[in-house]
Simulated assay, not measured.
Amino acid sequence: MKKNENQEPTIEELEEMLAKKKADKRNAQERERKRYEKEKDYVANNIFSLAKQASEFMADVKKTCGVEMNKMAAELENYGKFPVKSKGGFSIDNAAKTVRITRTRDTQPHWDERSEKGAQLIKDFLADSIKKKDKDGYEMLMELLTKNEAGQLEYSRVMVILQSEDRFSDARWHEGIKLLKESYSIHMKGFGYRFKFKNANGNWETLDMNFSSL
């Protein structure tokens, strides 16, 4: 029997229509999820692959820099009549003077356990003898003994104190400076490299090559 077009749908038919709409919506959402995840997977893999290639290339560049600049360091050492002891830092230019490569020493300052006592002796002296007389001077000197985020004293700041060794006659001041000097050492991490080129205006520009983590 043919259904009358004006006849209201039955509850079963409404439920069937609602179920179909829900299923269509779920299917659309699933297709969208798969499309998104496929695109995300492609982008992540593609970018990571490029980054990995770049990292490997940069590592090769640094290795080549080490080999070739070591050769140049030996050539430089042997050039001329009188060899000199170099600490490793030098620059070379091409014949046209348009390209420059600089090798630098990558070092890390270190203060051993004696620095703790040395700094404390100086702080005790400053608190007893300087704080009341010269508050600004006291705060400045105390700031020079402040540690950085790595828990190390800052070499440039401590040097200000070391260069002022004769400023006070107190035994704690001198003993503190002595301990600071004895506690300091430099650890050689390796060599760093800087690259420069002359632009169209004849000015030097730096080529951004970060080897610090390689």
Rank of each mutant, 00 (worst) to 15 (best):
S86T: 13
R33M: 03
L121W: 10
S91F: 07
K81L: 12
Q152K: 14
Y79A: 07
K62D: 05
F125T: 01
K34V: 15
D124M: 01
F48M: 00
M142Q: 02
I130N: 08
C65V: 06
M72D: 13
T98R: 11
D136V: 15
R33G: 01
E149N: 07
P83C: 08
E113P: 00
K135Q: 05
E56I: 10
K133E: 12
E116C: 04
A73K: 12
D106N: 13
K52D: 12
V67C: 00
K132T: 04
C65R: 09
G151V: 04
K71H: 12
K131I: 00
F125G: 00
R33S: 09
K132W: 01
K135C: 00
G89R: 15
S91E: 14
V84M: 11
F57C: 01
T107S: 13
N94E: 10
K62I: 06
S115L: 08
T102F: 03
S129C: 13
L76I: 15
G151H: 01
D41G: 02
L50T: 02
E149D: 06
A127K: 15
D93M: 14
V99F: 15
D93S: 11
R114Q: 12
I130F: 02
R35G: 03
K123L: 07
Y138K: 01
Q53W: 00
L141F: 08
D93G: 02
I122P: 05
K123W: 02
L121D: 05
D124Y: 03
L121A: 07
Q53V: 10
A119W: 05
K87L: 13
I92H: 10
T146C: 00
N70T: 12
T146R: 05
K147A: 08
Y138W: 03
E37M: 09
E75M: 11
D136W: 03
F57S: 09
V61K: 08
A127N: 13
R33V: 05
H110P: 01
R35C: 04
D60Y: 02
N46C: 02
T98C: 05
Q53H: 01
R103M: 15
A74I: 07
Q152Y: 00
D124C: 04
I47P: 03
E113N: 10
S55K: 06
S115Y: 08
A59L: 11
E113C: 01
K81C: 00
K87R: 12
D134Y: 02
P109Q: 04
G151N: 02
K87E: 15
S91C: 12
K63N: 09
E113K: 14
L121S: 07
S91Y: 14
F57H: 07
S115N: 04
A95I: 14
V84S: 14
D60R: 08
E39M: 09
R103P: 06
